[in-house]
């Protein structure tokens, strides 16, 4: 089975994140990059599918040179090889353009199942899986917290407000996973040592038959018009418990519309 897992490098969620004043895109250089948390679940799920059904896991990453660190980590966890789509022309692509570029690569490398996290912690669009499936003309199984493959059929459990749906499709398909679908493994030291020998195929836009005019900041369908820095956090409210602490806390939560 040919399993492709999409892995995005995002700025460390704990770090202070900034937009660059010159083009209003995320400053990816000044902060540490980490694997998008939901993608770690996707990696784990792809490895479990491989272990259960045999096959090969390919990491697909679109991102700057620096994203190679995240590819390394995914390979250390046990993925077999990687494709790194890296080209200055891609800088500033929005989700529509990203889905176009990644679909081009997926057409080229082929797949039985594509797995990805249901959203990234930086842009939080949550639309890539649907767009990829649409462009590739295959089924999308979204928000999965359970994945089973049986011959040419894939069954997932889709989380919903009311519980979950059982969803079934035939392969090939695109699956997006949610948090807690599994417990991602730590890379083992042997895995880390082996990772540097695993093939990483670096592709530019031309190598992947991507039309450079259809990607990048200038052609993006969405535009960041303006941004302001988040206001500093206000001082917390301390509630003194004089027998009515519970009520005061409830009132506070209600005033903030949390309850």
């Amino acid at each position: 089975m040919n399993i492709v897992v999409c892995v995005k490098q995002v700025p460390d969620t704990w770090a202070e994140r900034k937009l660059r004043s010159e083009d209003k895109t995320l400053d990816r250089e000044s902060v540490d990059g980490v694997i998008n948390e939901l993608d770690e679940y996707a990696i784990e799920e792809s490895l479990r599918i491989k272990e259960a059904h045999d096959g090969e896991v390919t990491v697909l990453t679109m991102g700057p040179e620096k994203a190679a660190e995240s590819i390394r980590k995914a390979l250390s966890m046990g993925a077999d090889k990687a494709v790194h789509l890296v080209d200055d022309a891609l800088h500033g692509s929005d989700v529509l353009q990203t889905s176009y570029a990644m679909a081009q690569v997926l057409r080229k490398i082929g797949f039985d199942v594509v797995i990805l996290g249901s959203e990234s912690t930086d842009a939080r669009m949550g639309a890539l899986a649907a767009m990829l499936a649409e462009r590739l003309g295959v089924a999308q199984l979204s928000l999965a917290n359970k994945v089973e493959i049986d011959g040419g059929t894939i069954r997932t459990q889709r989380v919903a407000d009311y519980g979950f749906d059982r969803v079934e499709a035939s392969l090939p398909a695109v699956v997006s996973v949610v948090e807690k679908i599994n417990e991602p493994r730590y890379p083992s030291f042997k895995g880390i040592m082996a990772a540097k020998k695993k093939p990483v195929d670096k592709l530019g836009v031309a190598d992947a038959d991507i039309d450079a005019a259809k990607v990048g900041l200038t052609g993006a369908a969405t535009e960041v018009v303006d941004f302001v820095a988040a206001p500093p956090r206000e001082k917390g409210t301390i509630v003194k418990d004089e027998g009515d602490g519970g009520q005061k806390v409830a009132e506070f939560l209600a005033s903030k519309k949390f309850i």
Partner: peptide, 14 residues
């Protein structure tokens, strides 16, 4: 090196 950093970070997370 990359490998050294990854080993360190793995232990740190663990």
């Amino acid at each position: 090196g990359d490998e050294e950093r990854l080993i360190r970070d793995t232990v740190c997370t663990f």
